[in-house]
């Protein structure tokens, strides 16, 4: 009896620690973002001050709104482009047999293991060569390259498990490969598409190194870089309040997306799979 209570207690204690560790930084950021002036440097764990000054200042001075727009544009384009390419590639890799298919799959997996920094210089040359430097396309291009291997791999695995006979039924019904992909497979792959799309979005939204390297002006930056480069009134002042306000602003959409789609993912997974 006692042992069971201890076990339960230990379990919830562990959960509490995990929640605390993962949520506390964000909570503290929110707290800080509502403080102003010298209150910033007081340490307290419960809300004492409430002022929207930091938010107003972030959104009205400088080009933060523009940066936010860039981030949305880049991340959305990456998701759309990567999913389109990955779904079509996955169809070929999963359902069309051709010479060297296995090798190609392994290569794709291997490519996804390169660290960003290793290809930074080469990618920079490419971006310059294509004349994409300091445009959103530089980021869309490089993020898509980095997202694709994972996306293709996941979707290929998923598509391979879809029943062959459903595809054949569609062929007999006169469906072209494009119709099979869009009308038959995509609706069945909804959970996989949401998951991979969400991960691609988050990765693009948070990416820092490429964003810093491939853009040079304030107007073309995405938010992670913009936040890092926020500066105070003087060189010696770090505007913590505004940084925190900006961080909260960019985190909220992500949390929202995950909450919306999480329900969809769970729905998709519990709908009984794909059984003819």
């Amino acid at each position: 009896m006692l042992w069971r209570y201890t076990k339960t207690a230990a379990f919830y204690l562990l959960v509490a620690v995990i929640v605390l560790v993962s949520v506390f930084p964000f909570y503290y950021a929110i707290l800080t973002s509502f403080k102003s002036g010298t209150a910033l440097f007081e340490i307290n764990y419960l809300p004492h001050h409430f002022s929207l000054d930091n938010y107003v200042s972030v959104l009205t001075t400088g080009v933060f709104v523009r940066n936010l727009g860039n981030s949305i544009l880049v991340a959305t384009s990456v998701v759309v482009l990567a999913l389109f390419l990955a779904v079509t590639a996955a169809f070929a890799l999963a359902r069309v047999s051709f010479r060297g298919r296995g090798l190609l799959l392994m290569t794709i997996l291997a490519v996804s293991m390169f660290p960003q920094i290793a290809v930074l210089a080469g990618l920079f040359e490419l971006v310059r060569g294509f004349g994409l430097f300091n445009t959103p396309f530089a980021l869309i291009f490089s993020y898509t390259i980095f997202t694709l291997p994972f996306t293709v791999w996941v979707l290929t695995t998923f598509m391979r498990d879809l029943p062959m006979e459903i595809e054949e039924a569609a062929i007999v019904d006169g469906a072209s490969p494009w119709v099979i992909i869009t009308k038959v497979f995509m609706p069945l792959m909804w959970p996989a598409l949401v998951t991979t799309g969400l991960l691609a979005f988050i990765a693009a939204w948070n990416e820092f190194l490429f964003a810093l390297t491939f853009t040079s002006s304030n107007e073309t930056r995405t938010v992670p870089v913009a936040i890092a480069l926020l500066s105070g009134a003087s060189q010696y002042e770090i505007p913590w309040g505004r940084i925190m306000a900006a961080s909260v602003i960019v985190t909220v959409p992500l949390v929202g997306l995950v909450l919306i789609f999480q329900r969809k993912i769970v729905q998709g997974l519990t709908a009984g799979g794909v059984k003819g």
Partner: peptide, 19 residues
């Protein structure tokens, strides 16, 4: 192609479109 042959096929596993 199958769709031009004037055939229809019934599969062992039914192969209905689940969605």
């Amino acid at each position: 192609p199958p769709s031009k042959r004037g055939i229809a096929m019934v599969f062992q596993s039914y192969a209905l479109y689940p969605h």
